[in-house]
Design a protein around this nucleic acid. Structure first.
Lengths: 364, 364
DNA sequence: AAAAATTTAGCAACAGCGTTGCGTAATAGG
DNA sequence: CCTATTACGCAACGCTGTTGCTAAATTTTT
C-alpha cells in the first residue's frame, strides 16, 4: 500500500515489515539478529516481535545458549499462517499456485483455456481452481487474496486489462473489480514479467539488487526490479524488451519496426539454430546491462526453458566477455529458481507483499 | 540521506520535505494547498510551516482573502536561504554553477581544463571557481555544499572515481574525500547524466514521472529517473546507453561490440547527415521507451544542442509514429530546459536534495 | 451599526511510535 | 553461594501527527 503522508502508523507497519523481511530471509532469528540488521533498539524489536506473535505471523522456536548468560529466544516465521493464490494467465493456459508466507510454492496446477477465451471463461476457470486449492487445506481465514499475472498492456493501478495481445475479448476489461466481485477475494493484477521478477526478489531477500527477469515465451519480455521495487513504468507498460531494435536492417516485426530483438530471435529459433537465437538474446541482455547496470539477470519462459543450458551459457558468456565490464561490474546470471511457476508464484507474492512487505511512500 | 529504520525523526524530515516540495513547485502556497496536496491535517501543516519558517526556508508573503472569512496566510519559498554549487567535469572543460533553493541557476561559468588533467589540477580549478562564486554574494553560511557531475565509471556511494573514460590520471581516485578536505565543503559525486536528470526532476516537481535524460556529447549517455528517484544501477554504472547494440551487422565500436548506438550515430554525424544521426538516436530512444515506459524524455548535450530542432523533431516523430503506442501511452519529449547548465545544475541540486528533498528509506 | 456566517489559525490534550534508564531473569563459572 | 554475563522488559519520556475546541479576522446580512 502506497501512501503520501507519513504518520506513526506508518512507522509501525514499516518496522514490522523489516522484521518480517528478516524472518523470511533467515530460517530462524533472534532479537539480536534483527537489532543488527535494522539498527532498531532491542526494546523496539521486542515490541514489534510481540505484535507479530500476537498476529500469528512468527513464533518462538527454542532458545540459543550463548555459553554464558540468559539464553536468547529464537524465533521463526510461521509459513502457513498466511497464503495467497497466484494465477498466470497465458494465451492458452491458466496456471494456479498456492504460495505461503515464506514464498514456498505448495501446489501448482495448469489447466487449458479455450482459444480466445472471454473474461467470463477466465473467471469460471479461476473459480474452479481456487475452490480446489482452498479446499485442500482449510485456508478460509488465512487466504490473503489472488494475484493475477498476465500479458499486457494493462493498467496495474486500476486493475484494468487494456488490450491483451492476441486476445479478442480483452479490451478495457476491469478485471480486478469483476474478479473481486466474482471470487470474493482481494485481487491484484500485474503484467506477467513484473510478477515474475517480484517472486525472485522476494525469495532472494533484501540483498537482492537491481535485477531483470528475461522471459522467452511466444514473445520476449522483461520484468524489472529497480531500487528495491518493481518497475512498471509510467503506464504499466515497461518490459516490452522484445520490441527493442537490435538490427536496423533486420526483418520487419509485427510491431512495425525493423530488426526487433523478438523477430531476430524468432527467425533464428525457427531455423532451428537455438545457439544463435540464444546469442541474439544475449546481445539484448547486455544492452540492458549497459543501460541499467543490473546485479542479477534471471532467465525464464517456456521457450527458453526448453533449452535452459544453451541460453544460460550464451548469456553468461556474453555478459562475461564484454570487454568494458571490469571486475567490479559483477552480474549474476541464473535460470529462474521457480521454473515454470515463477509468474504465478510472483503474482501470489505480490498479494502477500502488499500486506507484509515494506510499505512504500508515494510523495505527492 | 538514506536510512534503514524509521522513527519519529524520519516523520519530521519526510513531511517537512513534502511541504518544501509544494513550495518549490508552486510559486506561493497556503496552508490549505499543502493540506490538499499531502493529506496531512491542517494542524500538522501549521506545525511544519512553523518549523520551516524558523529555519528561514519559507516565509509569509501576504494574505489571500477568500471572499468571506479570515484571510489565509500565503507563504513562499525563500530561494536565497540556501545555495549549492554544481560542477560539470568534462574532458576539457569545467562548468560551475550557483543554484539556489528554488533550483534557479544564478551564475554559470565555464573554464578550460588542461589536457589529461590530474585530480590536483581539478581541485585547484574548483577551488578558484568556488571562491569566485562564493565571493559574489556572502554565501558562507548558506552554502550547503558542492555537487560534482562527471564521466564515469565511478562509485557514487563511496565518492570514488573508478576509471574516467579517456582521463589517464583518474583511476580509483577518492574524489569526494579529497575534495571535501581540500575545499572544506560537503561534496557529492555522481555521473553526469544522473545529475542531469535530477535537475529536470527537481524543477518539474512532484508530478514528474519516470524519465530519461539523453545526452549526446562526445559519447551518448542516459540518465534515468525511475520511481521517484535517480536510478544508478548496482554499481553506479547505469546509463551506458550509447553502448547498446542497434545494428548487429554494424561497425565495430570502441567498446568491442558491433553496431552500438554510439558508433552508428557517430558515423552518420561524421558524414554530415545530422538528420540521419538524429533518426538513429531516435531508434535508441524508442528502445528505451519500450523497455522502461517513460513519461518524459529530455534531450541534452553539447553535440545535440548544436542541432536542437533536428533532434527534437526526429525523436518526437519516432515516438509518435511507433504503431504500438496507443493514445494512453503518452510520452513528452523536450529539450533540456537548462541547456548546457543541466549537468552542473543537477549536481548542485543533488546537494540541496540531500538536505531538503524527500528522505529515502533503504530497507536493510 | 450590530449580528450572523464563514473561513482560517492555533492552543491543549491525546494516542502511538521508538528511545532511554534501569531493574529482573536466567545461565555458566569460580 | 556468589559473581559475571547475557537477554529481556517495565516504566517514563520525547517526539510525531491527530483530535477537539476556541479564538481571530473578515464579509454578508439584518
Amino acid at each position: 500500500m502506497t501512501r503520501v503522508t507519513a504518520d506513526v502508523t506508518f512507522l509501525r507497519g514499516y518496522n514490522q515489515a523489516l522484521v518480517m523481511a528478516v524472518g523470511r530471509t533467515a530460517r530462524t532469528f533472534e532479537r539480536a539478529t534483527v537489532v543488527e540488521a535494522t539498527g532498531l533498539t532491542p526494546q523496539a524489536v521486542s515490541k514489534v516481535i510481540a505484535r507479530l506473535i500476537a498476529d500469528g505471523l512468527i513464533r518462538p522456536a527454542g532458545v540459543r545458549r550463548p555459553g554464558i548468560g540468559k539464553p536468547a529466544v529464537v524465533y521463526e516465521l510461521v509459513p502457513d499462517s498466511r497464503y495467497a493464490i497466484g494465477a498466470h494467465v497465458a494465451r492458452r493456459t491458466l496456471r494456479l499456485v498456492l504460495v505461503d508466507l515464506a514464498g514456498t510454492v505448495h501446489h501448482s496446477a495448469i489447466s487449458p483455456l479455450p482459444r480466445d477465451f472471454t473474461p467470463e471463461q477466465l473467471l469460471d476457470a479461476l473459480s474452479v481452481g481456487i475452490d480446489t486449492m482452498a479446499g485442500i487445506r482449510d485456508l478460509q481465514s488465512r487466504l490473503t487474496g489472488l494475484g493475477i499475472g498476465m500479458i499486457g498492456p494493462l493498467d496495474h493501478a486500476n486493475g484494468l486489462v487494456r488490450d491483451a495481445h492476441g486476445l479478442r475479448h480483452w479490451h478495457d476489461v476491469p478485471l480486478r473489480e469483476i474478479a473481486e466481485k466474482h471470487l470474493g477475494l482481494p485481487v491484484h493484477l500485474d503484467k506477467d514479467v513484473t510478477a515474475g521478477i517480484t517472486a525472485e526478489a522476494w525469495r532472494h531477500g533484501a540483498t537482492f539488487g537491481d535485477a531483470a527477469l528475461i522471459m522467452v515465451e511466444s514473445g520476449i519480455g522483461g520484468g524489472f526490479w529497480l531500487g528495491g521495487a518493481a518497475h512498471r513504468g509510467a503506464h504499466t507498460n515497461a518490459g516490452e524488451f522484445g520490441h527493442t531494435v537490435v538490427d536496423l536492417t533486420g526483418p520487419r516485426c509485427v510491431c512495425g519496426r525493423h530488426g526487433c530483438l523478438e523477430i531476430v530471435h524468432h527467425r533464428a529459433a525457427e531455423a532451428g539454430d537455438i545457439a544463435h537465437a540464444a546469442r541474439v538474446l544475449a546481445v539484448g541482455v547486455v544492452n540492458l546491462l549497459q543501460t541499467l547496470d543490473l546485479a542479477h539477470v534471471v532467465l525464464a519462459g517456456a521457450d527458453l526453458l526448453r533449452h535452459p543450458q544453451t541460453y544460460l551459457a550464451a548469456v553468461t558468456e556474453a555478459v562475461g566477455a564484454d570487454a568494458r565490464r571490469a571486475d567490479w561490474l559483477s552480474t549474476r546470471v541464473a535460470l529462474s529458481s521457480l521454473g515454470a511457476d515463477v509468474i504465478a508464484a510472483g503474482a501470489a507474492i505480490q498479494v502477500l507483499d502488499q500486506h507484509y512487505g515494506i510499505p512504500e511512500l508515494a510523495p505527492i
